[in-house]
Design a binder for these strands. Structure first.
Lengths: 333, 333
DNA sequence: CTGTTAGCGCTTTCAG
DNA sequence: CTGAAAGCGCTAACAG
């Protein structure tokens, strides 16, 4: 691999001059530039990113930490981040936190040690205080999918209370009175907020919240099945099931169908997140939009503006969910 | 940020000694080691990965290039790679190639310049020759989802001809005579192989391949819809649709249902890939397993063995697809 | 406009 | 077992 030194020798100039033409950040005479470019070409010179980082203390790369790589949720987000950043000549280093505090912290350290110019974090297990402290550090941080007071300006998040409210209000407006709720892990803030919205809609309609018709799942299909089976065993009547995400809704529907229920004729089901797949299969899932991809894009734009000083559209932190009516929920007869 | 120098001063030893205890690769007296560890602790010292890479010419990170970040397909693969590597203290840098030759090459360059110790590539647009040359270079390469003669030992791939064969044979064994084929992009090798397998099954059954009942999609749901609509407009009779992946199968089923067809009563549909979602919704998709996650794991193991010299299970390159019978295809009445 | 010269933080011979 | 010292490839003052 040719180094900057090889190029400088071949072009008959100094290291510094080669560096200047590579970085295109200082005046170089046209003639010299041409000589250098020719040498670079001849030697197939590629600047060593590592050395450059060490010397300049920036890496033209931003770190992204997501809780998981698989599943339908984070893909679109990562794709958008990568898109925006790649367009600006920056690169993305991805790590996974697996929803575990230790692993999340480790991932952050890894990205920091690798000299990322900024971090985009989707973390759920670390405490707020840790994040506040992190924001004090040298490396700029953006939080996605989480709201932390004190560092509001670094947060890009969905109004989950509203999402929960919209979902339940839709069900109630269809005439359902008895509803079951299939929740995500209760320690997660967004889960709590979705429940809050659910309860607000109930209250507004003068309906009680029934803690028995409530099941705490883990956001995966399997726990959707488990939840449905639990509700069925309970033997309590309910005509609608409100789920905290689409994956669990899918699992629940599968279990319901297997138990001989028709969806939506016998049971209406609401999802949440508007993940791509369920829209394509029967019954199409009614759900709440969660523009996670747009949030990813926004995070990337924030980084571009604040770290790389590109100007552009202004960045907004709070996103609004929307009701998406399809076929899995219908009016109660 | 504390540097190795700060630690050496505080511990009253030389840089070299600190380096030795950090890397744990040379004998250091217990007493010295303790002093150093204490100093590291006190200063909250974190080795700078960039500097370490520059000096040692290895980065403890491996680059992964996938064609796309979104979609249900690559998530599980990346997750497995990350899992295996993280378990060995290595890290993953992910880039996307978007199925475009320029972007794929750029991505490879990026990963190379970042000093990755090895590359795991899922590329589709670059020519074989490029890959062969790449394998000549310093950085070890593993190819996933692609077979290139000459570098067989670097390839981890699925027997797609067999997958195509299994899918079609299943349909024919159910008594279907008229089948339509919804293909992926024809320039892709695996697509061509799936078609080959399809044709072999047809031939074996003494049935002709009908080029009219053939549609080239792009592997996304939208083209599944488009394909179905195309076949419907054609007005030709067929009782089964064989798809080159699950996403297109989902789209096709959606379009079929909207057109008033029942699946599988009026139309049997086969998918390919065994992506998570379609299993959970009605009708559950019959498909061909594509153990992409296992292939990812295998690639990571290869790297562990060949690059980091960890021993372990032996690595096999060729994976066999399996038929997964669910509900979207049934016997013709 | 161009060259010289210190480093960036760490690893790695080579002596001792 | 430990220390001194020479880089890894590049950037960024500072002179000229």
């Amino acid at each position: 691999m040719a180094t900057i030194y090889d190029v400088s020798v071949m072009a008959g100039v100094s290291l510094a001059t080669v560096s200047r033409v590579v970085n295109n950040n200082a005046r170089v005479s046209d003639k010299t530039r041409r000589k250098v470019l020719a040498a670079m070409e001849a030697l197939d010179y590629r600047p060593n990113a590592i050395a450059r980082s060490l010397a300049s203390n920036r890496s033209d790369s931003v770190g992204v930490l997501v809780s998981q790589l698989e599943g339908p949720f984070y893909g679109p987000m990562m794709a958008e981040i990568e898109n925006v950043l790649r367009g600006a000549g920056k690169h993305v280093i991805i790590a996974a936190g697996h929803g575990d505090e230790e692993q999340e912290k480790e991932g952050v350290q890894f990205l920091l040690n690798r000299g990322c110019d900024a971090l985009i974090l989707d973390v759920e297990a670390v405490p707020d205080a840790y994040l506040v402290e992190l924001c004090q550090g040298q490396t700029p941080i953006v939080l996605i999918n989480r709201y932390v007071t004190g560092i509001d300006d670094r947060c890009i998040y969905l109004d989950n209370e509203r999402g929960g409210y919209l979902s339940t209000r839709h069900i109630l407006s269809l005439g359902h009175q008895k509803t079951a709720y299939l929740s995500g892990p209760l320690y997660k803030l967004d889960v709590q907020q979705r429940i809050k919205g659910h309860q607000r809609a109930l209250e507004e309609a003068g309906l009680p919240f029934d803690p028995e018709l409530f099941f705490e799942g883990d956001f995966h299909e399997g726990s959707g099945r488990a939840g449905m089976e639990y509700f069925l065993r309970l033997g309590r009547a309910f005509s609608a099931l409100i789920c905290a995400n689409d994956s669990m809704a899918s699992g629940a529907i599968a279990a319901a169908l297997e138990a001989g229920l028709r969806v939506p004729e016998d049971l209406s089901v609401m999802g949440y997140d508007n993940v791509p797949f369920p829209a394509y299969i029967s019954p199409k899932l009614s759900t709440i939009s969660n523009p996670i991809d747009k949030m990813g894009k926004m995070a990337a734009l924030w980084v571009l503006q604040h770290v790389y000083e590109k100007t552009g559209t202004s960045v907004t932190g709070k996103f609004m969910p929307e009701l998406i009516v399809r076929d899995s929920a219908q009016a109660r007869d």
